[in-house]
Design a protein around this nucleic acid. Structure first.
Lengths: 110, 110
DNA sequence: TATATATATGAATTATAATTCATATATATA
DNA sequence: TATATATATGAATTATAATTCATATATATA
């Protein structure tokens, strides 16, 4: 399997859990600290921390520490790349230039 | 969570396994019977049968029986719908009309 | 009809991920 | 400085999915 395919699978695994999906959906609204996320989703703090660290390790989100708080946000470059890979998987050309990362541009050359 | 989101998660779960992903990739080349798939991927027959039945139950593929053989193929309507849902998730409008299923057209009205 | 081949299926096992629990660490505030 | 708050982390538990094993079923062919 190609690196692209392995990366897609990693993405699918990272987001195929209901709670992780909800966390990503919530972060789409904007940067949020852990305490806001776990209260909003009615999940316990430890569980959310574990999920956040998995999502961060997989590249879907970024963390920014400020005082006692850690603010997480979606990694837009990552999602732009995934979108590109996914459309490639479906056999389409890339259809948008805005948000293109270097990675997606390199992919277009292949 | 909306029905669309639950359907996307179901798709992510269905395809986030390496072997299932390989099966889908292989079927993208065209309809194949089980014996061709499991030999091509060097997996055992039972395992492939289990995966095929999971992929079929989730809607990603279709099966057609002919004599001793069962031929599987990707369900293009399903993938067209997933593409539509995925782009909605990423905040895009639908960008193509070809292959539109009734479902994606209904989705566009929301 | 007996036998071989293709596929499916249920139960058992193994691997992996999700969740919880206890607790550590860092920082802010009384 | 003592205490409260926000977050992370490792181990234990639980849930779920992947894989294997034994075998059943259907169909083609000798």
């Amino acid at each position: 399997m190609s690196g692209d395919e392995l990366r897609l699978i990693k993405f699918f695994k990272a987001i195929s859990d209901e709670n992780k999906f909800k966390i990503i959906s919530s972060l789409k609204e904007g940067e949020k600290c852990v305490c806001v996320i776990f209260k909003e989703l009615s999940l316990n703090q430890t569980l959310v921390s574990h999920h956040l660290s998995a999502l961060k390790a997989a590249g879907l989100i970024k963390g920014r520490k400020s005082g006692k708080w850690v603010y997480y946000s979606v990694n837009k470059k990552y999602f732009a790349e995934i979108e590109s890979l996914f459309n490639k998987l479906l056999g389409h050309e890339n259809f948008k230039n805005e948000n293109d990362t270097i990675n997606t541009m390199i992919n277009n050359l292949c």
